[in-house]
Amino acid sequence: MSNKENTSEEIDLGQLFKMIGDGFKKLFNLIGNIFKGIFHALVLFLQYIRAHFIKFAIAGLVGVGIGWYWDSVSDPIYRSNMVVEPNFNSVQQLYNNIEFYNDLAKEKEFQSLAEALGVEQELASTIKKFKIESFSDQTQRIKQFSDFISQLDTISQQKVDYEDYLKNFNDINSRFHKITVEATNPTVAKKSQRSIIRSIETNEYFQLQKKINELNLSVQDSVLTSQIKEVDSLQGFVKKLKLLEANKAESSTSISMGEGKSDENLEIQLLNQASRFKAEIVALNKERAKTQNTINIISEFPQKGVRVNEFFRKKKVLLPILLIGLVLITLSLLSLNSFLKTYSNTKA
């Protein structure tokens, strides 16, 4: 009986191993067929390129020639960057203004653009593009997340993590933003800088926010200064009491505030409180400096922009690629048309 069971188990195991082997064989054959198909398609494509190589070469040479001439007669493009830090939630207005300038440049509304930027129309006509984007790295985002968390209550802090914060993070949430101007005149960006900033600063809403912020900071500064004076008075009072206690240590009518340790603890507490108030004043001064302007300029536009010399923006590079692509599409459509005609005749 046991011999039959062993034989049956050996047969089952043999069938199992055979099935596994067949499965691997099919998998390897499938992978091999895929690679063969890719190789075959590559060979056909290379044969197709070889058959029409002269056409592609002519298209490429024509594109290089036209592109080189186009580059030589075109005015060079200069790029200027400025990094700013908007305050009082003015970043959305800044983005809207930059998009408005860019639309005017695209539509060639140079008179309106010149009026908006406070420059001559001739200078405004040299502007090709306006762009604004966030300017932040991982360190800045972590710091912004820390500042955001510190403003929440304990329960809300437990419900928000860094990953959730990043999912809802967009360009407007960034602290710094980079404004880019591309123009054929290298100085137009610098001449437009003041008007770009003033377009935000002259906004009545932001002016009101700035005024309220200054009043709030002044009130906080007065309160902290008053509290520091009170702490200084208490420290002087404690010192006088200690002197009285030292002079009348043996008198039964001496004024006492308790044990020496209590006096020391009180002095330490007053010193710590004074240090905290002074630290708050330092932070207040930093906040006052940061919010002195509606838009803080971190890095101004340079006096002259940098010439744009990117490889894939050159016409002598783009045109050959474009013409070769057009030739490839045209020949492919012709080949497809011939195949369809042959296929139709065969079926008929």
Rank of each mutant, 00 (worst) to 15 (best):
E5N: 13
F35V: 10
I38E: 04
F28K: 15
N29S: 15
K25N: 05
D22Q: 11
H40Y: 13
L42K: 07
Q15R: 05
K25V: 03
L44Y: 08
K4D: 05
G32P: 00
E5R: 14
H40K: 15
N3V: 10
K4H: 09
F45T: 06
N3W: 08
L44S: 08
T7R: 08
Q15N: 09
D12M: 07
D22H: 08
F39R: 12
K36F: 04
E9C: 03
N33H: 04
L42P: 04
M19W: 14
N6I: 11
K36Y: 03
K26N: 09
N6W: 06
N29A: 15
H40A: 15
A41S: 04
L44G: 03
K26Y: 06
E9V: 06
F28Y: 12
E5W: 06
F24M: 12
I38C: 08
T7A: 14
K18N: 13
L42R: 10
L46T: 07
A41V: 05
L16F: 00
G37M: 05
G32V: 02
K26R: 13
F28R: 14
T7K: 07
M19E: 15
L30N: 11
F35L: 10
F24A: 06
Q47R: 09
G14M: 01
G23V: 00
A41R: 07
L46M: 07
L46Y: 09
F24W: 12
Y48K: 04
F17S: 04
L16N: 03
G23H: 06
N6Y: 08
I11T: 03
L46Q: 07
V43I: 10
I34Y: 05
L30V: 11
N3P: 01
I20K: 10
F35C: 07
K26A: 14
F17V: 04
E5Q: 09
F17P: 01
G37V: 01
N3L: 11
H40E: 14
E9I: 09
L46H: 04
F39W: 11
Y48D: 03
G23Y: 04
K36P: 00
L27E: 11
K18Y: 13
L16K: 02
I11H: 04
N33G: 10
K18G: 09
F45C: 01
Y48P: 00
N29Y: 13
G21L: 03
L13F: 07
S8K: 07
Q15T: 02
F28S: 15
N6P: 00
G32W: 01
N3F: 10
N29C: 10
I34D: 02
D12C: 02
F28W: 15
F17G: 01
L30P: 01
D22G: 05
I38F: 11
D22S: 14
L42T: 13
F24E: 12
H40S: 15
L16I: 00
A41W: 01
D12E: 12
F45Y: 11
Y48F: 13
E9F: 11
K25D: 07
L44V: 07
L27Q: 10
A41P: 00
G14P: 00
I34M: 04
M19K: 15
D22T: 08
L46V: 14
H40R: 13
G21H: 10
A41N: 11
K25S: 09
K25L: 05
Q15D: 01
I38V: 14
I11G: 00
L27K: 13
N33P: 02
